[in-house]
Structure formats: C-alpha cells, structure tokens
Amino acid sequence: MKAFQTLAKVCAFGVVALTAGTASAWQYYPGSAFKASFAGDVSCLNVQSYSAIRNDCTTARLVTATVPMWTVGWHPTSVYLYGNNTWCETTTVNGVGNGSNLGATTYTLAGPMQWQSLNTGDRYVWEDTALVFRCNLQPGGVIGGFSID
C-alpha cells in the first residue's frame, strides 16, 4: 500500500514538474526553420550542414520564421548567425498577422564575418498569438538557430 502511495506521489510530482517545466520552457529552433519572405527568393536559401540556412545570392534576402506561442508574458529572444551585415528583429503577431509588439532592429557586429548571437529583445506574448523572427540575411550569411525563453 505504501509502495503504491509512493508511486502515486512520484507520478503526481512528475506531472507537476513537467507542467511547470513546460510553462517556462526554453525553445530552440534550427536556422532551417526560416523561410524566404518572398517567393522569388526561395532559390537563394539553402540548408547548410544539417540545419543552418545560408543565403547564396549576391544580395541580402528577407527571411521569416514563425513560432506559435501559448505562454502569456515576456519572452527573451535571440538569433545565432554568421555574418557582419545582417539585421534581425522579433515581433508578436495577432490573429490576422499584424504586428502587436514590434521589437527594435538588431544589427550584427561590423568587421570580419563571424558567428554571433543577436539579442533581439523581449517580446510580450498574449494568449494564442505567435512570435515572428525576421532577418535580412546578407550574401553568404548563415543563420544557425534561434531561441525563445
């Protein structure tokens, strides 16, 4: 009986722990989750290695990734990329796709192209909305991944 009670407690705590973990889960997405914002740019974007995305055209291309969100509140966002002349920004969007909380544009460091993490700011998420990551990816630039906390 006691063993059964212990097992029940473990299961209950497991459910609570998993629920609590989900509520503030850090999410990571690979760069290949980005898509060309415009149909004409699809051929510019190719997957590099397993999951990064690279702009193989000679000019910058706008790419977008969208993540449905369920946890209301502020969420820090960041993008990890290779470049020196790329910008990214994040936006909370509503049900008709309009921006609600627009983040400031964040630019890569100048100098030689290098892997760097762009802090794209904290975005407020309302119930059943989504976060959009948007980057203007330079020629030869690579997005390795992006994250939401």
């Binding site: 063993a3 212990t6 407690k9 473990v10 705590f13 722990a17 609590a20 973990g21 509520a23 503030s24």
Partner: peptide
C-alpha cells in the same frame, strides 16, 4: 523504496525550484 524516496526528493526539489520561478 529507497530509490523511489530519492527520486521523490529530487522531483520535489525540481518542483520547488519551478514554483519559485513561477
């Protein structure tokens, strides 16, 4: 039983930390 108690204690700690954060 001892293993379960240890796991239970670890889970309790995780829940306590998650609750504190929330």
């Amino acid at each position: 039983q001892r293993t379960s108690e240890q796991e239970l204690a670890a889970l309790k700690e995780q829940v306590r930390q998650a609750s504190a954060s929330a």
